[in-house]
Amino acid sequence: MCGRFSLTATPEEVQEMFGLEEIEDFPPRYNIAPTQPILIIAGDRRREEGDNRTDRRALLARWGFLPGWVKDPADFPLLINARSETAAEKASFRAAMRHRRVLIAASGFYEWHRPPKGSNEKSTPYWIKPKGGGIVAFGGLLETYMSADGAEIDTAAVLTTAANQMIARVHDRMPVVIRPEDFSRWLDCLNQEPRHVADLMAPAPEDYFEAIRISDLVNKVANSGPEVQEPATDEFAPPEPAKPVRKAKAPPAASDQLKLF
């Protein structure tokens, strides 16, 4: 999954990356958390007859997807991620997957390696970013929710997929990454149905990201400066999968088997 991410690129860098005509100024953000506003890029079909080109616009959306049919958001779970394998069929995401696919601008994301159940070890946070730096575009979904009083709010979720082998050492899921050459196809919801873009929702190449172990500062949303990304060690060495622990062997009866936890 993706529960925290960062966008520290400048507005000018974002504008160039996504081919935007204009973009409002914004500060660097090092620890973006659910329910906070996130920067998304949506596609707009030009209104001129016979012109099927796609414009792109940047807007802010609440990170926490609300389907249009929800009556009371207080009684609805916070949907920050959507599984790409099932989004086209799920009632919550089906319409957005068909009509409102977006790009979510990021500099990278945070993930936690969870210790085995029963362990006294703490979860270990990692800062995961493109090896060459720069901006990464997550595949996302957009829904404009209208409350009972008529107020509208744009809401969004990050699409996730199975982790590649490198990320799997930390977590079994990762955000869907859309490459710049695929931006237009992903955003073209007029002509490209979910089945036409299913190939874009594959794990990122093994050499795309690097994972850096960081301190526990990132755990608190109030910590929002660059210090949350400082390495805890000089080298990425996530724990290897835990080996099964064998119970002490009791004096065996003839039919006893060695048991594992």
Rank of each mutant, 00 (worst) to 15 (best):
T54I: 15
K122A: 15
M166G: 05
Q36Y: 14
D199E: 10
E16R: 15
T124M: 13
E227V: 10
T86R: 09
P175S: 03
A204E: 04
E230D: 11
E24V: 07
D75W: 00
N120K: 15
A61N: 02
D172L: 00
A162M: 15
P203V: 06
E13L: 11
L20W: 01
V218I: 11
I178K: 00
G3Q: 06
L141V: 06
S224W: 12
R29W: 02
V228M: 02
K243V: 10
K122Y: 13
R100S: 08
N191V: 03
A137W: 02
A9C: 11
V228A: 09
P238G: 07
V102S: 01
D172I: 04
E143G: 02
L187P: 01
T160K: 10
T8A: 11
E85D: 12
T86E: 05
R57P: 01
S92K: 01
G64M: 05
F109I: 07
T86H: 08
P194F: 06
L103A: 01
L159K: 03
P205R: 04
V136P: 02
W63A: 03
A168Y: 03
K129L: 07
P116E: 13
G108S: 03
M1R: 08
T161H: 09
M17Y: 13
P125Y: 03
T160Y: 13
D182Q: 06
L141R: 05
K131G: 09
Q15E: 10
D256Y: 05
I41H: 02
P203M: 02
A33V: 14
D75I: 04
A74F: 08
G140K: 07
E48G: 01
E22V: 11
R185G: 01
N120L: 12
I135H: 11
P241C: 06
K247C: 11
Q36M: 14
R213N: 13
F26W: 06
V245C: 09
E235Q: 14
D172F: 03
L190N: 10
L103E: 05
M1L: 07
P115S: 06
A254D: 14
E85H: 04
L190P: 00
R83S: 11
P244F: 10
T8W: 08
M17L: 12
Q192R: 11
L159H: 07
P11D: 05
R56M: 01
D182K: 07
T10Q: 02
D207F: 04
T35E: 15
A91D: 11
I214T: 01
A96G: 14
S147F: 08
R98Y: 09
P27H: 10
E48Y: 02
Y126D: 09
V245L: 13
P241Y: 06
L7T: 00
D216R: 15
E240G: 07
F109D: 04
P34Q: 04
E181W: 07
D25N: 15
